[in-house]
Design a protein around this nucleic acid. Structure first.
Lengths: 127, 127
DNA sequence: CCGAATCCTTACGGATACTG
DNA sequence: CAGTATCCGTAAGGATTCGG
């Protein structure tokens, strides 16, 4: 359905809800974190290890932002040394469910995109 | 619904379809372009003017990428001076339709996110 | 174990000027 | 009109080190 039901928001306004959310999803690590937490709560280093490639600095930044947005929760256990568990909130859960629709689109149409790229690149090669 | 139906892809692999698509959407201008074209084909400068804030360099980069991905089409009219029309392809159309679901989530839940942020910031203020 | 702070590199985006 | 080419400032992200 492409029946343009354009929202009454200004897409150029940084305060536009769509932009707000998309700016968050634009961070690739954020999505990986949310995806990881779908399996249940995880501790910091455990989460870090499960997402290969992310630096500790960036991970803590991302976690802080997601917590601030209410998408994940952070619970500290006063053990020695301290341990911290991160978990998906219900709000975060609905978001990941929605993102999955996009993931599904990707799986369905990635082949078409790759085909288009091949065609494009080929047309450039003979130019 | 949080019933983890995880795709059979490696989310850490840059070739994962989900990543491919999200990396594209991470470009804020790309989304604005796709959104703009939902109203019908537009010429370069027309598109540029309709998206305030984008530089001409970045716009042409974005357009080239979207064309390569098969999400938009580019048609040159041999007028003098030449005019070029960009339009959404059917593939691009299905993507924007899917993105709209995300937009809808944003509209529905943005208030909750802002509330969470306010709570978070308040808890920091008294720390 | 969890995270903050520092340094440093690089890659993106804006402004400007030029071509077909 | 529709780009390409160049320069350049800024800000994001990685590596490393230190603290609670």
């Amino acid at each position: 359905m492409v029946t343009s039901t354009k929202p009454p928001y200004d897409v150029y306004d940084a305060n536009c809800p769509a932009r707000q959310v998309l700016d968050r999803l634009s961070d690739k690590w954020a999505l990986l974190v949310l995806d990881r937490l779908r399996g249940g709560p995880l501790r910091f280093n455990s989460l870090r290890r499960s997402i290969s490639g992310v630096s500790q600095k960036v991970l803590s930044q991302v976690l802080k932002r997601l917590e601030r947005d209410g998408l994940i929760s952070r619970q500290v256990f006063p053990t020695v040394p301290v341990s911290v568990e991160y978990a998906l909130t219900s709000l975060g859960g609905t978001l990941t469910a929605t993102v999955e629709l996009l993931t599904h689109w990707a799986e369905t149409n990635m082949a078409a995109i790759e085909a288009a790229q091949a065609r494009y690149d080929a047309s450039l090669a003979l130019a």
